[in-house]
Design a binder for these strands. Structure first.
Length: 877
RNA sequence: GGAUGAUUAGCUCAGUUGGUUAGAGCACCUCGUUUACACCGAGGGGGUCACUGGUUCGAGUCCAGUAUCAUCCACCA
């Protein structure tokens, strides 16, 4: 037996073990089949890694995502499924370009235009590559059992082919169109931004009231008002009923007299300001809609750099922020200013991807029409409807369910998706122009003189295809045919913050191109926050970097602290203390292992005899196996982990191991511990694998591919009557039946049979109907007092009625044991037999007192009075 | 303005279709170093489950309202 360190030193093991796993090839399901670890026709289980942006390092949120996904993947692999976890990275077009522009400017003072498209793109690619390498390293550090052989990038050659195929198909179907529409223009980054990428920030500003002919209009942005020649009021606003819709008036405005037209439109809020407003259709989405409704012309006031156009006359060429005060001065000189408020709170729109203040502009862009209908399975549907149906029908189950509402609400308000961006880093739009000719295809058209559209696609267009573009769709038909067994993927695990950006768009794309959902379940995890619940950010200095934690505490401790205490859709708070406590736990497990190793040999598989304590721990283990399995199936990772921790520490280590010191049963000790290692493996892959190798020797198969424990080695038989001890004489019958149901975990839908023994049968007869209905009782037998109690029953006393519930075959062993413990002193007329199968032998125990011995009290005695306990236990055999 | 969630021990949180005396980890107090572990063990204190009503034999759990906090969506020209 080799010397084993007293404490677990994660750093000594982790890299070595990861290398061993990787070299085994078992992260790749093909190898699992080839080596006979799983059956060739095994059920697939697949997850795509939400591709991290190549904008830098992974943060703690990524670590949490990796931990949860690795639990699912390792668990399902051990369940014998054909398990694939497919990695990749996202080019994050606008975010990455913006980041590199920033670095470039800081380091050299140059802009991307100084370098030119090609040279700048080279820089971005270099940056992306180095980010990618960092990320891949970090993903490994977390212990992620990912199939690196299938790694993909949203902007690599293959994905480009998928994107082109997708674009062309949508273009040919008329789903993608080009149009002049109002878009969110970022003058700083010189690109459009989608509605979802906009962040709003409160700003205190001045608010101006101007005289506009007979009307008073208000605005926070006087600089947009040059071209306003329509004043709009609500149709039912009595203040303006003397004016007719379409009526023209002459008035004095910023640059002289103009003719304005009065419009009546219900979009106006009568309560706000004077209830009258002028519109600037080119620079405001609502004004644009009003103008569209009334067929008005639109005029651009501000150029794409944020400067005023010639319509502003002497202000032309001026930056809009500078111009504002000057325009107001001019209006003041003309006595057109009615009032100026100073503390007006108003929201400004900002490009959340590191850009500037959004200026709405009308621009020719590419859009995906979400409302256009097409024929699918003989029915007219739109993309919106496809997205709705996928979730409504249960094809995609969202966990937690409440996000369904958010999802539907978002779709209801969804407008056409602007997919073109005026940035360089991304998939070029596969459209070519030659004069008036336009060509869309997966390859450049033949012939000279064609020029490709200079815009690129929104990054979410390519990530929307991710579940199938990674499996060969669009670039390798043979691969796709082979691998589409993994589609739809089993589950998508990602943050709720990208429900709209990504989750919804994947559903859109997959439904459109494949006619199926991209994943069967969407598990949405929360954000990781600091101890005080604040977002982690550089400026607050509260960032926990996974790479700082892992060397000191180990990846396992980090994983546990991110999983335990975390429920889907809720943010989790993480502090150093929590990590330390799980570090202590990994060490605890390590030391239990040390004890097991010094006490037993790998050959200890069959026990010579079984004591009551052995039975008890085996029974408990079985119940833990069942609970943990159930929780994992239901995505309750936190509860699964807690159940395991409580059992491992409080029952196995503190109780059974102590008993083992007095009364050794090495086979049972080993059996329980090795089963625990398997159960813990998905949560803590490193320390469990390290212990496994030490317990079994280096040459053995990896714990990673061991079979998940599920064998129920224990059966229980109860016979005789069991007294139920609640609410004697105080509660009505229904309550009693419900109590028994709850106590024995009887399925509420399941009907039971009850027997009542009472002196007053008339009273009972009158109650039969209601009891049957409310307590879901199949049959009620009423017996006269003095009749014999039926067997296989629990009974309860209610006043002077004895109620018996027939329990054959539906007793819950756990609950029953606990209850038995309490009832022990009062009732003696039962027997309890437990059979335990270990190694090919059956062991039978008929010693109920031992099963219900008061664990820790007995243990204390055992420690203090070893002799006494020894004889006590000996008597039980 | 609309929506969603949270409110349980000093702190962080469990509590899954309503059911015996509301749990855990950390922190705190007492005792103990007995060969797996002091990164430990034994024991203990501490909760009007935010508030007010309602439904029920029974409510932390279900319903209505209130308060505080958080997040998302829409935004007023």
């Amino acid at each position: 037996m080799q010397e084993i360190s007293k404490t677990y030193n994660a750093a000594d093991w982790e890299d070595r073990l990861y290398k061993q796993w990787e070299e085994s090839g078992y992260f790749n399901p093909d190898n699992l089949i080839e080596d006979g670890v799983i059956a060739p026709d095994a059920e697939p289980f697949s997850i795509v890694l939400p591709p991290p942006n190549v904008t830098g390092n992974l943060h703690i949120g990524h670590a949490s995502m990796l931990a949860i996904e690795d639990i699912m993947v390792r668990y399902n692999r051990m369940q014998g499924k054909r398990t694939l976890w497919l990695p990749g990275a996202d080019h994050a077009a606008i975010a990455t370009q913006s980041k590199v522009e920033g670095i470039l400017h800081k380091e050299t003072g140059l802009t991307k235009h100084d370098l030119g498209r090609e040279a700048f793109l080279k820089k971005v690619e270099d940056f992306a590559q180095s980010s990618h390498d960092t990320i891949a390293h970090q993903v490994r550090k977390m212990g992620s059992s990912i199939d690196w052989s299938r790694e993909a990038y949203t902007l690599d050659e293959n994905r480009n082919l998928s994107v082109r195929k997708a674009f062309k198909q949508m273009y040919d179907d008329g789903i993608i169109y080009r149009g002049d529409r109002i878009v969110n223009w970022d003058p700083k980054m010189q690109t459009t931004v989608s509605d979802d990428e906009i962040e709003r920030k409160e700003e205190k500003t001045k608010f101006y009231y101007f005289q506009y002919g007979p009307f008073v209009i208000s605005t926070a942005r006087p600089e947009t008002k040059f071209g306003d020649k329509h004043v709009v009021v609500h149709p039912s606003d009595n203040r303006y009923k003397q004016y007719a819709h379409g009526q023209q008036i002459e008035l004095e405005w910023i640059n002289g007299p103009i003719t304005a037209t009065i419009l009546k439109d219900e979009a106006i809020d009568m309560e706000f300001g004077s209830g009258a407003m002028t519109i600037t259709p080119w620079h405001d989405a609502i004004d644009f809609d009003i103008a569209q409704r009334h067929g008005l012309s639109k005029e651009q006031i501000i150029d794409f750099d944020g400067k005023l156009l010639p319509i502003a006359r002497e202000f032309a060429g001026m930056d809009i922020h500078e111009a504002r005060e000057k325009i107001v001065e001019k209006l003041q000189a003309k006595s057109l200013v009615v009032k100026i408020e100073d503390d007006y709170i108003h929201n400004i729109a900002i490009n959340s991807r590191g850009g500037g203040i959004i200026e709405p502009q009308i621009k020719r862009q590419w859009f995906i029409d979400v409302n256009k209908t097409f024929v699918r399975d003989g029915k007219e549907v739109s993309l919106k409807q496809l997205m709705q149906t996928a979730v409504r029908s249960g094809g995609v189950e969202i966990i937690p369910e409440r996000f369904k509402r958010t999802y539907f609400h978002w779709i209801d308000n969804l407008r056409d998706w602007c997919i073109s961006r005026q940035i360089w880093y991304g998939h070029r739009i596969p459209v070519w122009y030659r004069g008036e000719e336009i060509y869309c295809g997966t390859k450049a058209p033949e012939g000279a003189g064609w020029e490709q559209d200079s815009d690129t696609l929104d990054t979410w267009f390519s990530s929307g295809l991710w579940t199938f573009s990674t499996l060969g769709w669009g670039f390798d038909e043979e691969k796709w045919q082979r691998e589409k067994i993994y589609h739809p993927t089993s589950v998508l695990e990602t943050g709720y913050d990208i429900l709209f950006f990504w989750v919804a768009r994947m559903i859109l794309m997959s439904e459109y191109f494949l006619g199926e959902v991209p994943f069967k379940k969407a598990y949405l995890h929360g954000l990781v926050r600091d101890e005080q619940g604040r977002k982690m950010s550089k400026s607050l200095g509260n960032i926990i970097d996974p790479l700082d934690i892992i060397p000191e505490h180990g990846a396992d401790a980090l994983r546990l602290s991110l999983v335990i205490g975390s429920t889907p859709g809720n943010d989790i708070k993480l502090g150093a203390e929590k990590i330390v406590s799980f570090h202590n736990f990994t060490n605890k497990l390590w030391n239990i292992g040390r004890y097991v190793m010094t006490q037993s040999e790998a050959t200890d598989t069959a026990p010579k005899a079984i004591t009551a304590a052995d039975h008890f721990i085996c029974l408990r283990l079985d119940s833990v196996v069942n609970e943990v399995t159930r929780h994992l199936e239901q995505y309750n990772f936190s509860i699964a982990g807690e159940t395991l921790r409580d059992f491992t520490w409080n029952e196995f280590a503190d109780w059974y191991v102590e008993i083992h010191k007095i009364q050794k049963n090495d086979a049972v000790l080993r059996y329980v511990f090795e089963t625990l290692l398997k159960l813990w493996h998905p949560f803590m892959p490193f320390v469990t694998e390290a212990l496994w190798r030490q317990l079994r020797g280096e040459g053995v198969p990896l714990l990673m591919i061991e079979k998940w424990p599920k064998d129920i080695a224990h059966t229980t038989h109860f016979s005789g009557d069991i007294a139920a001890g609640f609410g004697h004489g105080t509660q009505p019958l229904i309550t009693a039946v419900r109590n028994i149901r709850a106590t024995y975990h009887i399925d509420p839908v399941k009907k039971v049979t009850i027997t009542l023994i009472a002196p007053d049968s008339d009273f009972l007869t009158s109650q039969v109907g209601i009891i049957q209905k409310l307590a879901r009782v199949e049959a009620i037998h009423i017996l006269k007092e003095g009749a014999d109690a039926p067997s296989q029953c629990a009974y309860v006393l209610i006043r002077d009625i004895k109620l018996y519930v027939h329990l054959e075959g539906i007793l819950d062993v756990e609950k029953e044991k606990i209850r038995l413990q309490k009832e022990l002193e009062q009732t003696k007329n039962y027997t309890l037999r437990i059979e335990t199968q270990l190694g090919n032998q059956n062991f039978v125990s008929q010693a109920p007192e031992a099963i219900i011995l008061k664990n820790k009290e007995e243990l204390k005695k055992a420690q203090n009075k070893a002799k006494e306990i020894e004889s006590h236990l000996a008597n039980l055999l």
